[in-house]
């Protein structure tokens, strides 16, 4: 049975109930950003983010393709998460609780998930056309000059993923 998760997370006891290998369905708000915005957050170049509340939020490491006619967003697959590892604590300090991407991450991330009561979720890498279907609304938020790497806010319904690191720091990889 898939477990439905609503973002932002309001109840702190919810995430610790999840364990590695659980299949979840994300509903609600996801913030899209990756390498360049992570770097800006780590360097405290965040004036554009001042009015945004990230408490309990989810980040999806994704830089979609440009929008084609008849769609809300382009191809919507995840990028490799390990490149965000060195910036991740700065992002968690903003209040993020759910990180979605693809692929292996360093042991530091397991420690950070424990420390910040956060989880790392893997979704279907290389399946951008499929993941597009779960998007219901899109809004450009900040760092527009970064092109495809700009920060966007996306509302999703039943967006799929597997818990790969849980709040106890367990990792799914064998």
């Amino acid at each position: 049975m898939d477990i439905a998760i609503s973002l932002p997370i309001k109840d702190e006891t919810l995430l610790p109930k999840l364990t590695i290998g659980d299949k979840i369905r994300v509903n609600g708000e996801l913030f899209l950003f990756r390498d360049q915005v992570h770097k800006k957050i780590a360097e405290n170049d965040t004036d554009q983010l001042d009015s945004i509340n990230f408490l309990g939020s989810g980040v999806y490491y994704c830089a979609p393709t440009p929008v084609k006619e008849g769609f809300l967003i382009g191809s919507f697959g995840p990028t490799s998460s390990y490149r965000m590892d060195k910036y991740t604590e700065y992002v968690l300090k903003l209040g993020f609780k759910v990180m979605i991407g693809k692929g292996y991450r360093s042991d530091d991330i397991a420690l950070l998930c424990k420390k910040y009561n956060a989880i790392y979720v893997i979704t279907y890498g290389g399946c951008g056309a499929l993941l597009n279907q779960y998007v219901k609304e899109v809004k450009l938020l900040a760092y527009q000059n970064l092109g495809t790497e700009a920060m966007q806010r996306v509302l999703v319904k039943d967006f799929p993923g597997y818990v790969a690191i849980d709040t106890f720091g367990n990792k799914l990889w064998k």
């Binding site: 830089a63 084609k68 382009g74 191809s75 919507f76 697959g77 290389g126 951008g128 056309a129």
Partner: peptide
């Protein structure tokens, strides 16, 4: 899901991968 993605991409012309 990889197989579904291939079907959807061919049908919708959304790129296979972002």
């Amino acid at each position: 899901n990889i197989l579904q993605n291939a079907k959807l991409s061919a049908a919708t012309k959304l790129p296979l991968c972002q």
